[in-house]
């Protein structure tokens, strides 16, 4: 009886031992599968996030390109209207004034003065029309257009522009040159409107692997906090346009120290950045 009891006890102990070992093994294998599942799911999540980011960047870039195309088309339309309508009408006015032969010396002097003013207006409108038209800019090239524009501004006496070209100028491509010119126009506009500067230095550096455009004024400068929504969006627009052509636009300014805009471009890098931002861009 006692032997039977001991035997039964041993059997029970063996059964419990097997049960505990098997259960422990199962309870250790289950978390392994859970772990594998989580690692695989995490990898898929990472791929999903990357794809979403790529799609968002592609969308932003397309949006930016479309905005710029619309802007250029609008400017071209305005340029044509100015050239075809307004300058024609003013030329007619000038001719009519030239045909007036009556009146005393004083009246004739006033008529001549009016003719000169109309002639000046016609010239200014022609320059304006050309600067807005991308066909004209593309035809002349970036350097020539820049020289014409700086000459016109210097003649107006609004500000002194000093243009310096280092190295041998070479074509950068129509789209790039157009964007660079638009950046120059934006900087010039800001300088004339806000800075109160007397000088604007433009430096073009052409080298084998790099092109550098530097625009520096001696105005009152600004800090990031002072930038309001409108002028702030103009600065961001510059950075976005530069990024679209694979360039980096860096804007440095502080109160009392003027403003310096540097646009750097590797002319042989064809890739347009999908997220619209160059990796080194401030934004």
């Amino acid at each position: 009886m006692l032997e039977l009891f001991i035997y039964l006890q041993k059997m029970a102990a063996t059964d419990i031992k097997s049960l505990i070992i098997i259960t422990t093994l199962i309870f250790l294998i289950a978390p392994v599968f859970i772990l594998i599942y989580i690692l695989v799911y995490n990898q898929r999540k990472k791929r999903h996030i990357e794809e979403k980011e790529q799609l968002r960047s592609a969308f932003n870039q397309e949006l930016l390109k479309t905005q710029i195309e619309v802007q250029e088309q609008t400017l071209t339309n305005i340029s044509r209207e100015i050239h075809d309508n307004i300058t024609q009408v003013l030329s007619f006015v000038k001719l009519n004034l030239g045909m007036i032969d009556e009146g005393n010396e004083e009246i004739k002097a006033k008529i001549n003065e009016s003719r000169e003013l109309v002639a000046q207006t016609i010239n200014d409108l022609r320059y304006l029309s050309k600067s807005m038209s991308f066909e004209h800019i593309v035809q002349l090239g970036f350097v020539k257009t820049l020289e014409m524009e700086t000459g016109r501004i210097n003649n107006s006496g609004l500000i002194n522009i000093l243009l310096n070209i280092e190295g041998n100028a070479y074509p950068l491509g129509e789209e790039r040159e157009l964007v660079l010119f638009r950046i120059f126009q934006e900087v010039l506009n800001n300088t004339l409107k806000h800075s109160g500067a007397k000088y604007l230095k433009i430096n073009l550096q052409y080298s084998d692997e790099l092109f550098n455009l530097t625009l520096e004024d001696d105005g009152k400068g600004f800090s990031n906090k002072d930038v309001n929504d409108i002028s702030g969006s103009g600065l961001r627009n510059m950075e976005n346009r530069a990024a679209l052509i694979g360039a980096v636009a860096i804007i440095n300014s502080s109160p009392g120290k003027g403003c310096c805009v540097t646009v750097t471009l590797n002319p042989f890098k064809q890739q347009l950045y999908i997220d619209g931002n160059h990796p080194d861009s401030l934004s």
Binding site: I16, L19, T24
Partner: peptide, 19 residues
């Protein structure tokens, strides 16, 4: 993960403590 493995694995032992 360490906590899960330890406590999941030890459930069998603590469950049969009385025996």
């Amino acid at each position: 993960t360490g906590t899960l493995f330890f406590y999941f694995g030890s459930i069998a032992c603590t469950l049969f403590y009385e025996v």
